[in-house]
Design a binder for these strands. Structure first.
Length: 434
RNA sequence: GCAGGGGUUCCCGAGUGGCCAAAGGGAUCAGACUGUAAAUCUGACGCGCAAGCUUCGGUGGUUCGAAUCCACCCCCCUGCACCA
């Protein structure tokens, strides 16, 4: 890796990825040579979700530009819980649980950055390593002494917890900032790490670390935040009716992941291309221009879905997702061959095996059991509106008490498959037992 | 500790004895329209195919009948006091 790409910050800026940075513009100069930077990821579940994608990809952008990235997994901070902009105190997870999550997150994070590229190879660290044996008294004397409570109370990130009615903040969560600040200081000391990046909600924690590093080591370090991802319609990014979009394929299949991005609103598509893909800003501008000229269905979402899915699930994931999408949405799902159907199942289309005997189960019950809806109400509504299709045939509410008839072998595709569509986009593949 | 204000269905927020499964808004789901968009319109939105069943911080009580009244308890907020 020869040299450093000095246009990095400019590119990040063009992508809209810079929210705030410390140092009055000195950061550009600082990054003129290869530096070490870090970003933290707290284990709050056994997988990251797409909320962590911007920081993760930004870390990767820095590495591509010649800097050395450290991914910090918060084995310690995950035990405490970050209060930043959280409306309420959270429950603590047990050390065993968090330790298990740390392993998962470490593996996940590791796939994004390159550990074998010479000088600027990546590293993964765990902040539990330098906190687990630290004594309370040492902590209070060496770290706590550098923080002003007056200052901390005024942080925007905890203000609502301190001022707002109905919710308070425990000392535990209030101390979170000290732990994270200590991370930065430690990484500066141990690895000459001079930049921390994170989401905009991390600004307070990051500046805390910048200050602590200066006070403990007289070190000059920098912080930079990326914007919170927002959607043009104001709803929360990263959620769908079926919940959070996870990076773990076991939680969110590549197909569902791909569909999530494909359903991006026009108003967000180009912004997301800049945030989440490695296409150059010029290329993205060109896509936007072409879409505007053409009128009709834009190409942006398709490109976005393909690029991001490839980033997370690889070429195979994209291929699987596109196979399913094509089969279900463009064309004739009635023409699928037996091996096509088998492929859909392997590609991750939600599927289940029908019971040999339905007993007195209703059709609604069967679909709910399969996870197509959280309760019977929406299914009933859909049945009443001809919005349930079994192998392309609309099924009405009158068939509700006759699942055996609906799913009879005579009507099955290739003798055993049923593609059930509920609404416009929810598909499920049923197979007959045996 | 004292005084005052609160805890309602995913969220916000009405509701102060029956007309309440509980207004309104948001989110969400389905239909029409479309581009597997957006906007708009329509319907649904505690659970149940249904009959019906279970809810309004908790527990008891008053009443033919309670989210609404009473008692006690739990939790949150505000002020004062105590402590310092």
């Amino acid at each position: 890796m020869a040299g450093v790409d000095t246009t990095l910050l400019k590119d990040l800026d063009r992508r809209g990825l810079i929210n705030q940075a410390t140092g009055d513009g000195e950061l550009t100069e600082h990054l003129a040579q290869s530096r070490t930077l870090y970003c933290g990821f707290d284990p709050t579940a056994d997988s990251l979700h797409i909320g962590s994608l911007v920081p993760l990809l930004t870390l990767k952008r820095f590495q591509a530009a010649g800097h050395k990235p450290i991914a910090l997994v918060g084995g310690a901070t995950g035990l405490i819980g970050d209060p930043s902009f959280k409306a309420q105190e959270r429950n603590l997870n047990t050390p065993e649980v968090v330790a298990g999550w740390v392993d998962k997150i470490r593996a996940q994070v590791s796939r994004f950055i390159d550990f074998d590229c010479g000088e600027n190879s990546a590293m993964v660290v765990n902040n539990l390593d330098w906190t687990k044996d630290l004594s309370v008294l040492d902590f209070l004397r060496d770290v706590g002494k550098h923080f002003s409570v007056n200052n901390m109370v005024n942080k925007e990130s905890v203000k609502q917890r301190i001022q707002r009615e109905g919710e308070g903040i425990s000392f535990t969560e209030f101390s979170y900032m000290l732990l994270q600040s200590m991370d930065f200081s430690e990484l500066y000391r141990g690895y000459d790490c001079t930049l921390q990046i994170g989401g905009s909600d991390q600004w307070g924690n990051i500046t805390g670390g910048v200050d602590l590093t200066r006070r403990q080591h007289r070190g000059k370090v920098f912080g930079m935040t990326m914007p919170l991802v927002t959607k043009a319609d104001g709803t929360k990014f990263g959620k769908t009716e079926s919940g959070t979009i996870w990076l773990d394929p076991a939680r969110t299949s590549p197909y569902a992941f791909y569909q999530f991005w494909l359903n991006t609103a026009d108003a967000d598509a180009y912004k997301f291309l800049r945030y989440f893909t490695f296409l150059s800003v010029d290329e993205i501008d060109e896509i936007e221009r072409a879409d505007a000229e053409r009128a009709g269905k834009p190409e942006a979402q398709g490109i976005l879905a393909r690029e991001v899915t490839r980033e997370i699930h690889g070429e195979e994931g994209v291929a699987a997702a596109e196979r399913i999408s094509r089969a279900l949405f463009s064309g004739d799902s009635t023409e699928l061959s037996e091996s096509d159907l088998e492929q859909l199942r392997q590609d991750g289309l939600p599927s289940s095996v029908l019971p040999a005997d339905f007993g007195d189960q209703s059709l609604i019950h069967v679909l709910v059991e399969a996870g197509m809806a959280p309760s019977g109400k929406p299914v009933k509504d859909a049945l009443g509106r001809n919005a349930v299709l079994v192998n392309g045939q609309a099924v009405g509410i009158d068939r509700n008490s006759d699942p055996a008839g609906v799913f009879s072998q005579a009507h099955a595709k290739c003798g055993r498959f049923f593609i059930v569509r509920l609404g416009k986009k929810k598909y499920h593949l049923f197979t007959l037992a045996g």
